[in-house]
Simulated scan of single mutants.
Amino acid sequence: MCLLDRVTQWDGTTIVCTASSHRALGNPLRANGRLGAACGVEYAAQAMAVHGSLLAQTDGAPRAGYLASVRSVELQVQRLDGVAADLTITAERITGDANNILYRFTVAADGQTLLSGRAAVVLDATLLRS
């Protein structure tokens, strides 16, 4: 499932993407005809994955990442499906190493933040043992 429409800018620490799929009746995250604001975390996770893939073009082969935790999530709205404007998803890598990455993310529309938080990504869970 790809929820993002395009990458509008990116660099070594930040990616900005847009999406219109929150308005689609066939959005696979909808439940009972609604798309709750917490589903915005998946939009952010996809932006982080694209960021990792773009960075891998210069750093080597892309690796599968796993969303290990989401923290300090603040929902400013209850639902995303009623938002008329396209979503702007920003993910900023705030720290990390070769296996663990911490991102800060926001999902906004028309300059209004809809949700924000932090997400930890693990690239190889087998390295966490020991």
Rank of each mutant, 00 (worst) to 15 (best):
V107E: 00
N99L: 07
Q78I: 01
L3F: 12
N27I: 11
Q78W: 08
S21G: 04
A19S: 08
G96A: 02
T88H: 09
V16F: 10
T113G: 13
R23H: 12
L80F: 09
L54Q: 05
S116R: 08
Q112R: 11
T18D: 15
N100M: 11
A61F: 10
T95G: 10
A49K: 01
T8A: 06
A37T: 01
T88R: 11
N32T: 02
D59T: 15
D81T: 03
A45I: 02
E74L: 15
Q78G: 13
V41K: 06
A38V: 05
D97G: 15
S72V: 07
Q57C: 09
T13C: 13
V122T: 15
L115M: 08
L102D: 10
H51L: 09
T113C: 15
V83I: 15
D81N: 04
R118Y: 08
I15V: 05
A98I: 15
Q78E: 13
Q46R: 01
A91W: 14
V16H: 12
L75C: 09
L67C: 08
G12Y: 11
L55I: 12
S53V: 08
A56W: 11
R129W: 06
G60D: 00
D5S: 08
R34L: 08
C17Q: 12
A119V: 01
S20V: 02
D110A: 10
D11H: 08
N99D: 12
T95V: 11
G60Q: 03
R118G: 14
T14N: 03
N27R: 03
